[in-house]
Nucleic acid binder design. Structure first.
Lengths: 188, 188
DNA sequence: CGTCTATTTGAATGTACTCAAAAGCGGTGG
DNA sequence: CCACCGCTTTTGAGTACATTCAAATAGACG
């Protein structure tokens, strides 16, 4: 019962004889919290599949403030696509916020994987389609809703994260200051 | 010299004998401005490639305010991926803001196209990758920058749109009121 | 030319931010 | 086991960015 293979099986059928072959393209890595999978300035050459734990994908603006673009919980696929494709140094960070294990695959190996298992093209296309849908929702919500409404939606959607991660990370994801989020929470 | 075929040729090689066959999956449609390619409540069953002109992709919030998620100028690929994939009625609108011609392809035909020209899978994957990069930039900019900074970036990036489309649409894209954008522009 | 829409301007308001300080909480070492 | 340290969360006062509403002006198009 491997999470990564199960993940592929959501959209593509994989025989048990293929499993091992596919997994050989990946490296399984365990890290404690506060470990960096990617740092600003690095050229991102890999994609990551979060197997256990959670990472944050974020930027740091000119004033030194952190902005979380998205969380990568279990079962999430994450990379800095811009740096990965352009081979330009990344402006972003990927960092574990819990003890985390993840599968890493370099771009080169990913391309080989797709050569050898063309049916996986479909899998990655579907992932990207779903990701695009989420991004549009996020953009809409940031334009249409107040911080309070966004917080309520976040609580409903990620009840488990609320319990396990610091409020200031949620504030950073919602695009407000931790102080302001604290005030919102008081308004009930 | 066909824009759509040239577009495919950016990432995938297409022989001249394939051209006609590929184009047969699409329908070329011309419309005046203020025509709807998609309305809220419709199930989106097609994707659109903008050949000439420009469309806006937007939502209308509970207060009746319009929020532009993205512009689709020439050479742009656009659809409501959520509705297209889920077959749930769309919450979004796609509407021409200039006289526009576009290629339309239904989901069904697109899947057939991919069956018959599997190399196009790669093309659509790359499109989605680039789209994902743009979305992340947009999310970052909305969190990191003030309205004024976002406006300046928009002017630099889409100088041609500034000349041709109403300010209020730019305000809607930037996520500010038209009145406030007008004030920003006065501050030079 | 007249009508409709877009843009500008101004005053009052609201949402969210900054800075500062206090309170709470969790882990670590003595 | 408790005391202390560092980090997170809360609270408060003052401020800034952006909105609302209203009205005037400018532009576009039949």
């Amino acid at each position: 019962m491997n999470l990564l293979i199960e993940h592929f099986r959501k959209f593509v059928s994989i025989t048990s004889s293929e499993e091992e072959d596919i997994l050989s393209y990946f490296e399984l890595i365990k890290v404690p919290k506060k470990s960096f999978l990617l740092k600003k300035g690095d050229i991102c050459d890999s994609s990551f599949f979060i197997n256990e734990g959670c990472v944050k994908f974020y930027s740091i603006d000119n004033s030194g403030v952190e902005h979380i673009i998205l969380f990568g919980p279990e079962n999430w696929w994450i990379t800095d696509m811009f740096s990965l494709l352009s081979e330009i140094p990344s402006e972003l960070f990927i960092e574990s916020i819990l003890p985390t294990s993840y599968y890493q695959i370099t771009r080169k190996k990913q391309l080989q994987l797709l050569e050898n298992f063309p049916k996986l093209e479909k899998h990655f296309r579907i992932l990207l389609e779903n990701h695009t849908i989420s991004n549009h929702k996020r953009i809409r919500q940031n334009m249409e809703l107040t911080a309070k409404e966004r917080y309520e939606i976040f609580c409903n959607r990620y009840p488990s994260l609320i319990q396990t991660i610091p409020q200031k990370l949620i504030a950073s994801y919602l695009g407000v200051t931790p102080e302001f989020l604290s005030k919102l929470r008081g308004m009930y």
